[in-house]
Design a protein around this nucleic acid. Structure first.
Length: 372
DNA sequence: TCTGGGGTCCTAGGACCC
DNA sequence: TCTGGGGTCCTAGGACCC
């Protein structure tokens, strides 16, 4: 996991491993299909990530939940050809532990249920504390140093110690493992607080113009995402970096934030400011690897704020909004980038390499499903 | 040669106010 | 010599997740 392919070329050859570039359109579409089935079986759920969902079965008997879980594994397996794992427990963190067992050991046949104290303790004793949801590298290392090896060891530490070393976040994880739910099911889809678009270039790029094309394209994507969730942005964060791996080249990492005079979701406007920001941080003489934009301080796009000193008059602002609606409609109907700003160019000089892109088997070419 | 692209939450400390 | 106390807001940095 996370290993660049060129480092394991020998293994790929030896075992005839199939290699694919990532195709998020394909993954997102399959995710939608799986979840559209799962959702029908429980009253309430939380879309947690592209390949995970929390389902609430409060009020169901264990027998009933188990029977549903086994049905789901079969239905998704036969219907979509995808293996899924289901963990059942009284807290999210314990459910994730159960899922780990369901996935790891064939004997469970995709379903693991922690419904007694005995099973809880047994499960926690045989899982490395690093596998626990909420324990990452840093805490994992700290815990190991204190002789905490398993999830069970962790639950035997004094709560005060946990609070001091791992803040309230770690304490919640601790309590969840003890069977006290601290994380609620978040059924409501909340609008994002930040939206980021960035990509590494297909090759290193020295010149401003090409980088500006790439950044313009990411800015356009960010603006489109912004409009999709019906938000406007008040602050942009732009960054530009060389490759941290190329020790033979000069390294540079720069970023800048710009406050906007008035919240906007206009592609045209966001590109304009992004390019100004890029101009401010760009330096000649470096080989750059990645650039990106994050739109911050989002607000609902209903609030029409005015700024007397802002150069863009309200009439012009309305015109922008109208253009964006038309552009979004065209791109939704005919595929991404049917209509795009000239500023982003054709991408030939900077777009990521995707030599082994699997076909868009389940969608029309480049359609973007509404997912995640 | 080649090294992912997104997000969230919490805390500490400083600025500033009364 | 003594050097308030409490509140809010902001930012940077650190931790985590997929």
């Amino acid at each position: 996991m996370g290993t660049p392919i060129f480092e394991i070329e020998h293994l790929v050859k030896r075992y005839d491993i199939k290699v694919f570039s990532s195709n998020f359109t394909l993954i997102a579409d399959l995710s939608l299909r799986v979840k559209s089935i799962l959702k029908r079986f429980c009253p309430s759920y939380e879309n947690y990530s592209i390949d995970e969902i929390f389902m609430d079965f409060t009020g169901f008997t264990t027998e009933k939940v188990e029977s549903i879980a086994r049905d789901l594994v079969r239905i998704i397996g036969v219907g979509l050809g995808l293996p899924i794992s289901i963990g059942v427990a009284s807290s999210k963190t314990l459910a994730k532990v159960a899922t780990w067992y369901a996935k790891k050991f064939k004997g469970y046949k995709g379903v693991c249920i922690i419904d007694t104290e005995e099973k809880r303790e047994k499960a926690l004793k045989k899982i490395d504390v690093n596998e626990v949801w909420g324990i990452g590298n840093q805490y994992g290392y700290k815990l190991k140093k204190n002789n905490v090896k398993t999830a069970y060891d962790f639950t035997q530490m004094p709560v005060k110690w946990v609070r001091k070393q791992m803040t309230v976040v770690g304490e919640r994880t601790y309590r969840e493992l003890l069977g006290q739910p601290c994380f609620e099911l978040e059924a409501e889809e909340k609008p994002k607080k930040n939206i980021m678009v960035s990509r590494s270039f297909g090759k290193l790029i020295p010149d401003f113009e090409t980088i500006a094309e790439a950044l313009s394209s990411y800015a356009a994507m960010a603006a489109a995402k912004l409009r999709k969730q019906r938000s406007k942005t008040k602050k942009l964060y732009i960054f530009l970096e060389t490759s941290p791996f190329r020790k033979d080249l000069d390294w540079l990492s720069k970023s800048v934030e710009i406050k906007l005079p008035v919240p906007t979701s206009s592609t045209i406007e966001i590109i304009k400011y992004a390019k100004e920001a890029l101009r401010a941080i760009y330096e000649e003489g470096y080989m750059f690897k990645i650039t990106g934009i994050m739109v911050q301080e989002l607000s609902p796009d209903t609030s029409a704020q005015l700024n007397l000193y802002y150069p863009l008059r309200p009439e012009k602002r309305k015109k922008h909004d109208a253009i964006m609606i038309v552009a979004d409609n065209i791109n939704t109907r005919f595929g991404r980038n049917t209509l795009y700003p000239v500023a982003q160019g054709d991408g030939k000089r900077w777009w990521i390499k995707q030599e082994k892109l699997p076909p868009y088997w389940s969608t029309r070419l480049s359609d973007i499903p509404v997912a995640m």
